[in-house]
Computed example of a mutant assay.
Amino acid sequence: MSIPSISLNNGVTMPQLGFGVFQVPDDETTAAVAEALRAGYRSIDTAAVYGNEAGVGRALPDSGIGRDELFITSKVWNSDQGYDSTLRAFDESLSKLRLEQLDMYLIHWPAPAQDLYLDTWRALERLVSEGRVRAIGVSNFEPAHLERLIAASDVLPAVNQVELHPALQNRAVAAANAAHGIATEAWSPLAQGAVLRDPAVLAIAHSYGVSPAQIVLRWHLQQGRIVIPKSVTASRIAENIDVFGFELSNDELAAVDALDRDGRTGPHPDEFNG
């Protein structure tokens, strides 16, 4: 199974469909990542605050997959923001992941009350200049956070990873990303299951003989987003990657577009400082 890639604004290519491990306990992460790699995923998304970087790191060498075939993302947590503390946090993440280089490193949240994300970004710029990470980006950045960061920086974020699914389409953020050539990556792409019971999604799924989750993931992919569904169930891990044998029509895409309803499942970035 061949997963399409996205060419990021610095020339690095990233699989458009990856595997997320948010809320997966460390002792379950190794098996889940191993299952995902067997199913064909090559992009794994973790974060320091998930507490499971070590679990990811245990799975990678046992997979038998060459390092150059894998794309590993992690994120610096709010309590580690700031120039020096970000560099220390990166070293710790790299050690837990058992890697010499990370493919992507993100600022997990802007945490505006701390007002440290510009200093944190300078640390990420240093890491990419030293070749310790191939691409750097942000997560949960609103347009105002993006504009401020871009105005003060030398390196453009490659990715902005935000909550995005049919019930929260984050259109202003997606437009700001597109205006700057920043790839939009969707976390919680299935709204933790909340959108899978929508009649429109169920009807389209029935017509193709696939699951509602497969319809929603296909909707994301056809709109050019990077998407990182999460599961610890082998059958769902396999199902979520099996989305390349059909294509939604413009009318079907529009039917899913119409489900936007500000259905946020996580905190608002303007208010969350963790």
Rank of each mutant, 00 (worst) to 15 (best):
M1K: 05
P4C: 05
S7E: 14
S7K: 15
V12Y: 01
F19H: 04
G20V: 08
V24W: 00
T29C: 13
A31G: 09
A34D: 12
R38E: 15
R38G: 01
A39W: 10
G40R: 04
Y41W: 02
R42D: 03
R42N: 02
S43E: 11
G57I: 08
A59C: 07
L60H: 00
G64K: 10
G66H: 08
E69F: 02
L70E: 13
K75Q: 12
V76H: 01
V76T: 14
S79L: 02
D84S: 11
T86H: 13
L87V: 07
R88K: 14
F90M: 04
D91F: 00
S93A: 06
K96M: 05
K96I: 01
L97R: 11
L102I: 11
I107A: 09
P112M: 06
A113C: 05
A113Y: 09
D115S: 15
Y117T: 10
D119R: 12
T120P: 12
T120D: 14
W121P: 04
W121M: 05
R122W: 09
E125K: 10
S129H: 11
E130P: 06
V133R: 01
I136N: 06
G137A: 02
V138N: 01
S139V: 01
N140S: 12
N140W: 10
E142M: 15
E142I: 06
E147F: 06
A151R: 13
S153R: 04
V155M: 05
N160H: 11
Q161P: 13
E163I: 06
L164R: 13
N170T: 03
R171F: 03
V173D: 05
V173M: 12
G181A: 04
T184A: 14
T184C: 07
E185C: 14
A186D: 11
W187G: 01
Q192A: 11
V195R: 10
V195S: 12
R197E: 13
D198Q: 15
A200E: 12
I204F: 02
Y208L: 14
Y208W: 12
V210T: 08
P212L: 07
I215Y: 03
V216Q: 07
L217G: 04
R218N: 10
W219T: 10
Q222H: 11
V227N: 06
V232M: 09
S235F: 01
A238G: 13
E239F: 01
D242L: 02
V243T: 06
F244Q: 15
L248Q: 11
N250F: 07
A254H: 05
D260N: 14
D262N: 15
G263I: 07
R264L: 10
T265Q: 15
H268T: 02
H268L: 09
H268R: 06
P269F: 05
